Each structure stands twice: as structure tokens, then as C-alpha cells.
Computed example of a mutant assay.
Amino acid sequence: MKPIILFDLDGTLIDSTEAILESFHHSLRAHGAKISVSDTMITSQIGHTLETMFEGVGVESHAVASHVATYKLYYREISRQKTILLPNAIEAVREAASFARLGIVTTKTGLYSRELMEHFGMMGYFEVLIGSEHVTHHKPHPEPILTALEQMGGAISSVWMIGDTRLDVESSKRAGIECVAVTSGYDKEEQLLTLTDIIKPTALEAVKFIAQRG
């Protein structure tokens, strides 16, 4: 039986920081936000839902939904032009596909994530893609991982998650699977070390580590 490898997206396989920041600031401007929000405030929350991110920078609860809707419309327009693959991302996915079944588990909108992966010619490697609209509870809750595994079905020998934040690590632990944290994204090594010591610099190195573990 092949193992299963689940990949996060932002900070693990792709860098959409420019698209995220531009969309976030666009939404704040469109709604006449009176708060001052720095890029650092935004990037520090990547990995959480958009609702949590907007609340985290001070948007009032009653206005969060409209901010998110505006963000999503704008993000969809610019995401493919302002998102890049991280170094060796394609190589990581191809190598993983040579010995494992693959899925994507992200807190991004699943529809837009699928469009991005199709844009990069990578979606064909993945059996499932679980995005924010596919679950009720998001990372660090285990539901996104468990939903992916349920959809993949069949006999499962071992399951690994590759992600760049503590949300990925905690979600994996709560789902009862292994996780390799990578430092190519938004949490620093010292932050990741609070939850795990299985840390690699990139997704490709994480895949090689999993292959060695069998």
C-alpha cells in the first residue's frame, strides 16, 4: 500500500504573498477601514481563515463577511499573475507522486486553489483538494485532514502532512498523523520547534525524508 502525503499550499508549495497582501489592502480600502494595517500584521496570520485574519487586524465582527467577499473577488482576478511556485515545488510533488498518493489540505478557498494548481499544471498529481469551503472547522482542527482521508478512501498504510505553520503541525497531531514542518513559509523554525522537531527547509527535502522513512 502506498503512503499518503497531504500538502499545504501557501508557504509550502506556493508563494502568493503579493496577491494576499494586495487583496487584503484592497478590501480594507474598499470598505473605508479606519485602521492602520501593516504587511507584517497580515503575513503573521497567513494560514488562518480570512475571517480570522480580518478580525485579527481589527475589523469589526459585523463587517468581516463583506471584507472577505471583497477580498475573494479581487484575489481571484490577480492570484494567477501574482503567485509563484516555491523553489523545487514541482520536483517535490513529482517525487512524492512516484511513491505516494497525494492530496492538498489548505485553508485557502478550494475553488481558487484548484485554479492555481491547474494554472501551474500540477492539479493532476492530487486526488483531493480540501479548502476552506469544504469543512466546518479549519486548521488547527483535524477536520480538514480527516475529510481528505475520508474522500481518498481505501486502505491507508501511513499518512504524512507537509506544512509550514504550527496550524499544520497541530492539525496533524490531532488527526493522528505525522507531519514534516518546512521553513519555506510563514512560521520560523523557532516557532515550529514549539510543536515538533521534524523540520526541513523545503517541501522537496520533506518528501525525501518521508521516502526514507518508508
Rank of each mutant, 00 (worst) to 15 (best):
M117S: 12
S98F: 15
V64T: 01
T43F: 05
R80C: 14
V105S: 10
G11Y: 14
H26A: 09
R80H: 14
E55A: 15
T40W: 03
S23R: 01
M41I: 04
S113N: 08
I78E: 09
E60M: 07
S36D: 10
Y71G: 13
L13Y: 10
L28K: 09
A96S: 08
T43N: 01
I46M: 11
E22V: 03
S79L: 06
R29V: 07
I90G: 11
E118V: 12
L86H: 08
E115W: 07
G56S: 05
L111R: 15
K108M: 02
M53R: 06
F99I: 00
A69N: 04
G11W: 13
S79Y: 10
S27R: 02
G11A: 07
T43G: 03
R76M: 05
A92E: 07
I46R: 00
V68A: 09
T52N: 09
S98M: 12
E115K: 13
H119G: 01
S23P: 04
L111N: 11
S44R: 12
Y74S: 05
H25C: 02
I90H: 06
G58Y: 12
I14M: 02
Y112M: 09
G110N: 05
L50S: 07
I35W: 02
S16F: 12
V93K: 00
G110F: 04
D10W: 04
E77P: 14
S16Q: 14
F120V: 00
Q45P: 00
V37Y: 05
S66L: 12
Y74E: 12
S23W: 01
A92S: 15
